[in-house]
Nucleic acid binder design. Sequence first.
RNA 1: GCCCACGUGGCGGAAUCGGUAGACGCAACGGACUUAAAAUCCGUUGGCUUGUAAAGGCCGUGCCGGUUCGAGUCCGGCCGUGGGCACCA
Length: 871
Amino acid sequence: MAYPFSEIELKWQEYWRTHETFRVETGSSKPKYYVMDMFAYPSGEGLHMGHVHYAAADIMMRMKRMQGFNALHPTGWDAFGLPAEQYAVRHKLHPRITTEKNIANFRRQLEALGFGYDWSREINTTDPNYFKWTQWIFLKFFDSYYDTKENRAKPIADLISLIEKNGTHSLPCNVHGRDVRHYTAEEWKAATNKQRSDFLGACRLAYLSDAPVNWCPELGTVLANEEVPEQEEKGFTVVRRNMRQWMLRITAYAERLLQDLDGLDWRESTLEMQRNWIGRSEGAEIDFEIAGAGDIIRVFTTRPDTLFGATYMVLAPEHPLVDKITTSSQRAKVDEYLEAVKRKSDLERADLSREKTGVFTGAYAKNPANGERIPIWIADYVLMSYGTGAIMSVPGHDERDFEFAEAFGLPIVRVVQAPGVDGSEPLAKPFTDEGIAVNSGFLNGLATAQAKTTMISWLEEQKLGNRSIKYKLRDWLFSRQRYWGEPFPIVFANDGDGEYPKALGEERLPVMLPEVESYQPSGTGESPLATITEWVNTTDPETGKPARRETNTMPQWAGSSWYYLRYLDPKNDSEPVSKTAENYWMPVDLYIGGTEHAVTHLLYSRFWHKVLYDYGIVSTKEPFRKMYHQGIVLGENGVKMSKSLGNVVNPDEFLSKYGADSLRTYYMFLGPFEAMKPWDSQGIMGVHRFLNRIWRLAVREDGVTDLSRLTANAPSRNLERALHQTIQKVGEDVSALQFNTAVSALMILLNKMEDEEGGVPRTAFETLIKLIAPFAPHIAEELWQRLGNNDSLFNSEWPNYDESKTVEDAVVLVLQVNGKVRDKLEVPRGLSREALEAFARDSANVKKHIDGKEIRKVIVVPDKLVNVVVG
RNA sequence: GCCCACGUGGCGGAAUCGGUAGACGCAACGGACUUAAAAUCCGUUGGCUUGUAAAGGCCGUGCCGGUUCGAGUCCGGCCGUGGGCACCA
């Protein structure tokens, strides 16, 4: 008969709920420990097997708590998002209703797994008391510029004062965009609100952009760059389309986002992904004069040392100078090419296997290094979105340029040579490594690194260029054409010369979503909100004049970019988080979540955190000190669980068959937490048996407590050693998230306890219960109570171990001949080398193998082995 | 193509300052209890091989090579799996 897990699990879940056992207060004298998971999107499907990984943080919290920490493990709901909205579209139900229903169901399921959250800190991104502060933070972005002198965000009001004094020409910030009009102080005074707004938009951290965006017709919304690969994988199409959208200037933080990765205790591959996404490149910007026209083409290159080898230039098809420099004789060809490029999808354009295409503009530029006349081409292998949208082509030393030059018969010259290699032959393929500069005038003979700095100095002296750093990271597209998201706290005013955005004051937050008839996105690129004229048409509270509301909503990433802060002070209605709470709890000591968020959520929240840091709202540079990624659990056939494959295993089935304790413990026992591993329905029986064996040490078949198997004896020397070893191992393994080996250590301990002569010492049993408690909290609480304790086990102390008592006093000595094991024997610890060697010489089997041979050497590793080397 | 992980019994996995390969669990097989089954308990279990037995031998951590008294662990080169990036100048 299995122990009555259903009964006791309900009992203790109820107990923890009513006693608020895992509620923790800010400012205890105990050291704090803050562990959290990536919160759930409460889908209508309910919990799946993957959610059981939340047990890891629960186990950590429970152990840390028993170890004397003020341990916080909160949870909440990432509840804005598409599925609820799509359900609403189909059933004409407000998404709030399904969201609430789903949350109630999720909460019930999480409790059924025995997770000990501090429910007093539960948050919900769709709660007006939460998204009020999401909107508030958005306004911080809107009301900020990035000060490049102080290297931090500062209030836009500060910038305005500077402009009023000195105009816009020498501001301590980058003014982004190509056609930004500048103002003197006088002109600024005379400028219209719209004009001022246009200028400030070029500096704000949240700004409107009219650039091409990723439009997904199936979803009826635009997507951030980081989201595109995932949606394309799901089979959705993403096309480029020009739309006016809110952007967040994450690029201003590129360097800090990169630098601050260094101190983080994250998986190397995740750090690497972030580094690659940010994509920092060092090089130079160089100006090329266009022959005749007087115009200048600026390029970015990481190899300024190869400037002498630049035999032609290429502009991106979208480059603004294309139209201007194209000669009349080439006009028709250029137009035809531009038309062809426009028709290509992004996917086609990015297809590497494709032949290089391009067309000559008819114009020439002057290579600033050697004064040679070089042709200017356009080609779609040059991207407008990176660098300056134009390149100098060095076909001798760049693969893409080489391919292009070969295809169009452009000259290829060698300007870098591998040391010690004859470089007089023509290049059969591009040489992209570093080497020695040749055919490069004043650079000849210099190694690449030195040639780079020499060239940059020369360019700077000649005022032809300068050192430059570029990033692949693009600004974050922050609006979505959906209903179920945070409304922007923005209205558009119009004084007669065009619309411009204005922030609504803090006192008007939260800006609520209106009730609508249809949640269906229009598909034209307008949000469903755009159709609610009575909501859209409002008044500018400042002037009382008519104004129009922003009808896009924020992406789902918004609420999750700062939720780890709200847990700390969830009811605060005067600020997102109090200084006290933030100071006490931050940073997050352990954050557990999926790798799929390595460059989305994790990058976004780091960015928001840094902006808040600049304003002193948070005190740490980084939010998440230590990051762990759970590995996904595959179906029993070793492939990813999916409904179409019919290999989905449901946690409910195992919950009802074996109970939450078995399910949690088995999930952790499956294998390394971060590894991908198949589910095995049989395997859970092993863990279930293990828990049953513990149960039976203190309870009779009929369910009545029977402590007669427990003795008042002190543990034997062997058991005592095992206890100390296990306390040490479980503590260390759990801290390192090596749960599988911690569970196996507990199984070993139980095996030894059952072997103990004369019964199981009660003290040993208590230790076992405490050690298993984080994994199987219900059975542990129940047995703890049956041992006569009144308070929750989780208010008791974690056992201590004595290092000296973990040491074995006998060791198995391995005797080898030429590295092969020939004998093993048990000997006391700490014998001398001579004594150990004597054992080897005495061993019959060793003798057999060294007989008649010359002993060349004897290697003795104390307490481990003796290796006799014979020749 | 580039970058990052990883490759161990029938299965999940353990063991990496180089020092007993296969802990723990599943499955399988044999046994005890039972009228029987379930549950429970005990035992065996990497492959090949010598021996009546006691006890031995050889092989074995994806493949090939190297360093070492000794390699799952370190080095070089392949092969395979998973993940990420992908004309980023």
